[in-house]
Amino acid sequence: MMRKNLLITGGAGFIGGNFVQYMLKHYPEYTIYNVDVLSYAGDLLKHSHLEESDNYHFIKADIADREKMMALFSEFCFDYVVHFAAESHVDRSIVDPEVFVRTNVLGTQVLLDASKKYGVSKFVHVSTDEVYGEMELNSTELFHENTPLQPNSPYSASKASSDLLVRSYHETFGMPVVITRCSNNYGPYQYTEKLIPLVITKALNDEKIPVYGDGKNVRDWLHVYDHCSALDVVLHSGQVGEVYNIGGNNERTNLEVVRNILSSLGKSEELITYVDDRLGHDKRYAIDPSKIEKLGWKPRFDFDTGIVETIKWYQENEMWCKKIVFSG
């Protein structure tokens, strides 16, 4: 079987890192190139067992470095690109929007230019449901692929901008691109500033757990393993020029998530402390994944099962958490 060269950007991060391992497990005939700048949220500990693999290569580089990216594309002749690399924490985007624009917008444009120049066969751009804005809590509507983009934070605005750039390169240059928009991910190796690992690690240490506002903001939770399998389907079967929403059909309020974790760990809800709400905090996200389901994909994890396995993973990998927090 002919070998394929696959570039995964942001493969030292949470979702990208899980996708690196997924692809190596399911496609040993592929050679994986992981390009990551190793920001605070990236780590290579998760890939330490891959260091001797002939079909895995890590390259430390900034996707917004045009000269470096062009050189990499020229040298390795990538067949496919799956683009995860992004600044993604909303709170940080409120404090410093500029770094989000540089990485998420300029970095994406550099990758598109390199992919166009060197004839990449498919460019999968991994985005977020946050580009759609918010829905009212009492609404029964879901985000569809044709829902208008109405981002409400500098983070989601930068991702919406990159989505539009990717679309424009297909419409203008005929580039073979696909855009995916996922709901909130959870699972192994997630940096501990995000809600679920934050709650787990604080609860394990009997520390106070901050909850924004009244905790009633709703998110659709998607296990990262289900996200990886969906991206596999999109990479190999997704139609060029299309957008695919990826959701887990697991809507929960933030407070429900926190209480679920505390209950699973046998911890008191007295650990919960309510803090001032985040600026521009969207009320509800909810994904309709029916389009990608027509390609044969279905999520495997329901939230109650997935969260138990995730809690167990963090309990068994406390040293990883401590090392990542210390290094970050």
Rank of each mutant, 00 (worst) to 15 (best):
M135T: 06
F84W: 12
D96A: 09
F100E: 10
D62P: 03
G107E: 08
D54H: 14
H89M: 10
D96S: 11
L111D: 01
L149H: 07
E75H: 11
V110M: 02
K116A: 13
Y33F: 14
N34V: 11
E87T: 06
Y56I: 05
K68H: 08
H49N: 14
G107W: 05
R92H: 12
D113T: 15
S88W: 04
Y118A: 00
S139N: 10
F76G: 00
V126W: 03
S93N: 02
D43T: 13
V95A: 13
I32D: 02
V101L: 11
D43A: 15
A86Q: 04
V99W: 00
R102G: 09
Y56E: 08
V95N: 08
A86D: 03
R92E: 03
S121I: 11
E29V: 08
K60M: 09
Y118W: 14
H125Y: 10
F123A: 06
T147L: 01
D79A: 08
E130H: 08
L72P: 01
D113N: 15
V124N: 03
F143N: 02
S88Q: 10
D91T: 12
V124K: 03
V90Q: 07
A114S: 07
I63S: 03
C77Y: 15
C77M: 12
E98Q: 15
L149S: 09
D79M: 04
H49T: 13
Y30F: 15
V105Y: 06
N55Y: 10
V82P: 01
S74C: 10
L149K: 08
V105T: 13
S53E: 15
S115P: 05
L149I: 07
D36E: 15
F76W: 14
F58Y: 12
E98F: 05
L44G: 07
E136A: 10
F78N: 01
E134G: 07
Q109C: 11
H49K: 13
A61R: 06
M69K: 02
V99N: 13
F100R: 04
E67L: 13
S139K: 09
N34G: 10
L137P: 04
Q150E: 10
G133K: 01
E87G: 04
A85N: 11
F76E: 08
F58W: 06
N34A: 12
K60R: 15
D65T: 12
C77F: 09
D113V: 00
C77T: 14
K60N: 00
